[in-house]
């Protein structure tokens, strides 16, 4: 049965949206069936304080190993290309040298939870993907063909992440990800 939506507790600071925290780890074996099956919801939250209670109990991204992702998405949106909120959307992709993942992930989710992107309902969620040689940060939005919105998201990302000037940022539509089935 669906769990009841979280509510801010007494004295807590509400967020604009409720969110869900997800975890996934690539399994050996059946590649096509595994993505959805490997997604695990860690928990949902509605306030700043509830967010920190989850965050403080999970490993920092840089301490994870193997092929592991954290996903932080608005409640009701599954972190999948095919979800109705994502199917016309896309994502900004930022490839990080090893060692930067924890700091950049934290900066990204602070900006998302604090509504710093100023693009209305467009933000769907954020992902940090831990890989062998590099880590990958991505921010998903609803409407891939809205150039004004995607440019505004890019500019805010640059500001809040405080990345080296030569960092490459790439935008990819989920339609293209579905076509080539090899996002990273």
């Amino acid at each position: 049965p669906p769990r009841p939506p979280p509510k801010p507790g007494p004295g807590e600071h509400p967020l604009q949206y409720n969110y869900g925290f997800w975890y996934s780890r690539k399994s050996q074996g059946n590649k096509s069936a595994s993505y959805d099956a490997n997604l695990k919801l860690i928990g949902t939250f509605a306030s700043v304080e509830q967010f920190w209670r989850h965050y403080c109990h999970i490993a920092r991204p840089s301490d994870l190993n193997g092929h592991t992702d954290y996903h932080l998405f608005k409640e009701g949106i599954r972190p999948m290309w095919e979800d109705s909120a994502n199917k016309n959307g896309g994502k900004w992709i930022i490839r990080l040298k090893k060692g930067l993942a924890s700091r950049c992930w934290e900066n990204l989710i602070m900006a998302m939870l604090g509504e710093q992107f100023m693009v209305g309902e467009e933000i769907c969620g954020a992902v940090i993907s831990i890989r062998y040689a590099e880590d990958i940060l991505s921010l998903w939005n609803r409407t891939a063909n809205d150039g004004v919105t995607t440019a505004r998201i890019r500019d805010t990302l640059k500001r809040v992440l405080n990345l080296p000037p030569n960092t490459v940022m790439e935008y990819k539509t989920h339609v293209d990800s579905i076509k080539d089935n090899s996002s990273f």
Partner: peptide, 21 residues
């Protein structure tokens, strides 16, 4: 309605609140 904005520094301060433990 009005949106709820938080600056990074404020969110980081909330991490130390007893309510966040």
């Amino acid at each position: 309605g009005s949106r709820i904005f938080y600056e990074r520094n404020f969110l980081m301060q909330c991490r130390n609140s007893p309510l966040a433990k």
